[in-house]
Amino acid sequence: MDQLTQHTLWQSNIRRKNWLVWGTCFVLALLTVYCWSIMNKDTIWEFVYDAPEQGADLVSRMFPPDWFYINKLYKALWDTINIATLGTLLGLIIALPVAFLAARNTTPSVLFVRPIALFIIAASRSINSLIWALLLVMILGPGILAGVLAIGLRSVGFIAKLFYESIEEINATSVEAIESTGASRFQVINYAIIPQVLPAFLGVIIFRWDINIRESTILGLVGAGGIGLFLSSSLNVLAWPQVTLIIVVILATVIVSEFLSAKVRALLIG
């Protein structure tokens, strides 16, 4: 008798779960339909219906790429790589002290200094580099400098966050051991902390450089120098074969940077 009750109870449990799952699915479906109707309130369907034709037309105008245009791109490409590299360097220089101020085990004050450091990190991370660039172009005028600063300011949060997390994960007894020799605070950082976090730090820097190459290709859209400047001017004059070439060049650059960063990482850390 007992067993039977248990059996029934168990089944009813499953049924309730099933109802819950199906009910949730139904509500989600309703929500999707509702959202879709709002999303497409302003869509002009006549434009969408001939999208395949339009797409085919654009592609036909984009090919073949204007290969000779590459001669004008070399300098812009070089600028782009420099923006990414110098920006990463700038981010690193600012992020390093911020990370040590943010990590629980190295901050001089958990109550006062750490929140400030965390705020710097959050502020830098919450603003996209394109928006940083927009603001900086307004302040500094167009050019590479605005691009470098935009990439740098955006990188601070990313680098500092990953840095301080790895500082917090170090082996605390090694730190204790160095402290117990009578070493000063900076000697402890130099001897006990830096050796432990160095591989992680190098990995983060290379990873960020890799991301920055990609980000710096679009900064030109808002006037902050680099290859994006040419992309936006080609788009403006509807020079589609040039646009194709620029996209191909960006793709190639990103692939090469990814390959390079993987190689360097393996070399430094492996």
């Binding site: 090694s174 051991a177 160095i178 020799t181 070493a183």
Partner: peptide
């Protein structure tokens, strides 16, 4: 002080670990 889990800095050389005993006597 001598520790249970040795508490060496693993990525430094043996010599650097021994010399780190002198840190209190040296400038940064």
């Amino acid at each position: 002080m001598i520790f249970q889990e040795y508490a060496l800095v693993e990525r430094l050389s043996v010599m650097e670990n021994v010399l780190s005993g002198r840190l209190g006597y040296l400038s940064f």
